[in-house]
Computed example of a mutant assay.
Amino acid sequence: MEKRAPIFFFAPFVSSTMAVAPAWIDYNGHMNMAYYHVLFDKAVEEGFSLVGLGQDYLEERKGSFFAAETHTLYKRELKAGDPVRVTLQLVDFDEKRVHFYLEIRHATEGWVAATSEGLSLHMDMRARKVAPFPDDIMANLAVMKAAHGRLAKPPVLGRVIGIPNKAGINEPLLVSGTRH
């Protein structure tokens, strides 16, 4: 069953408000890093359900999307009970992939707790293989990208992890005579 594209998308998409659960707090007294990904994942599900990639898509059409790569930056601690919202910006897509950017923000104070850049792959769940998006999903992604394309490109996209040298350039780590 094809899903029609919404008339417009908020840019960026803003998730419902979620709260940091007490069980997510680690021995350092702040939210454990794993639960930042729980919040990001909930927002991805909420945001991409608008283009037709929700649980009903899996159940009715046997399609879904899987995370292929993520890059997370932790900027500020979250504590038990903190209210948060997650923004989602569709950066790009092609026939089999979506590239997106997320920010977890304190819902009442507005500061950014963490960012995540993600790349997900569209899956044919019958074959459990990467497959092209159906035409209606592609059309919906195009509408979302048109709205999100007006947003500034997040400066952290494509960031490389490493310890910068004095010139500010990341070099491979030299361990036991080999580069890693």
Score class of each variant (00 low, 15 high):
L39S: 02
Y35I: 02
R76T: 11
R97Q: 13
N28I: 08
L39Y: 10
E45Y: 07
R97E: 11
M33L: 11
P83C: 05
E45H: 12
N32E: 10
A43R: 03
L39K: 05
K79C: 09
A131M: 06
M144I: 08
A19F: 15
P172M: 08
D136S: 08
V143T: 15
N140R: 09
R126F: 09
P134A: 13
S120M: 09
L58R: 10
L173D: 04
L53A: 13
L102E: 12
K42S: 12
A11E: 09
K79W: 08
R159N: 03
S49C: 07
Y74Q: 05
L102D: 00
W24S: 02
M31Q: 11
Y36S: 07
Y35V: 01
D92C: 08
V130M: 12
T87L: 02
K129Y: 00
D26K: 12
E2T: 11
G158W: 03
P134T: 11
G149N: 10
S176H: 14
K75G: 02
D26H: 11
L157Y: 01
K62E: 15
S116L: 09
L173A: 12
A127Y: 05
D135I: 10
A34Q: 11
A23E: 15
V175W: 13
V84A: 00
E45W: 08
E60D: 15
A147E: 12
V38S: 09
L53P: 08
A43V: 03
A11F: 01
H148S: 07
S176Q: 13
M18S: 00
S15C: 06
T108K: 11
M33Q: 09
R4W: 01
A5N: 04
E69L: 01
Y27T: 12
M125D: 08
L119N: 05
V84M: 00
N32G: 11
T115A: 10
M123C: 13
D82R: 00
G149A: 09
G158Q: 06
F100C: 01
L88T: 13
M33F: 06
T108D: 13
L102M: 11
P164Y: 01
A113W: 01
V14P: 00
F8Y: 09
H148Y: 08
I137G: 07
H122R: 01
Y27R: 10
V84E: 00
G81N: 04
G110R: 11
A131L: 07
R76Q: 14
S116Y: 00
